[in-house]
Amino acid sequence: MENLNITETKSTPKVELNSITNKHYFIGESYPENTKDFYAPIMIWLKEYLSELPSDIEAEFNFEIIYFNSSSSKALMDIFYLIDDYVADEEKSLSINWLYIEENEAAEEYGEEFAEDMECVPFNLVIKEEDE
């Protein structure tokens, strides 16, 4: 299937979903005018990708979201639940990395709260070096 690439704007993150490398990235800030419109095509892509992905292929989802508003928080949760369900129900080899810089204690706390709601998928909190 075709990769999905969305360019970063001030209020929406850069999204790189890649069915060849199986490494996926969400980087930036998220406070779109219409959260559903922004995340709907991403959910469609992910559903198709995850249903086709063989169980023995490892896939990694990297989130480096410096700031997100409350409706984006819900959209991100929906993505995490989708990934978690594919690990729980079909034993797919998926993992989620939540990246943040050490200074950003809010991002760490948000990551912890997402992690608490995951049942099966490894949800890793990763401190990122600032000068990377």
Binding site: N34, T35, N69, S70, S71, S73, K74, M77, D117
Partner: peptide
């Protein structure tokens, strides 16, 4: 609130005030 569908009068998920 983040787990459930948003109510019909909210554009967001009704999470804003909790936030």
């Amino acid at each position: 609130a983040r787990r459930v569908e948003s109510d019909e009068f909210s554009s967001g998920a009704g999470l804003g005030f909790l936030e």
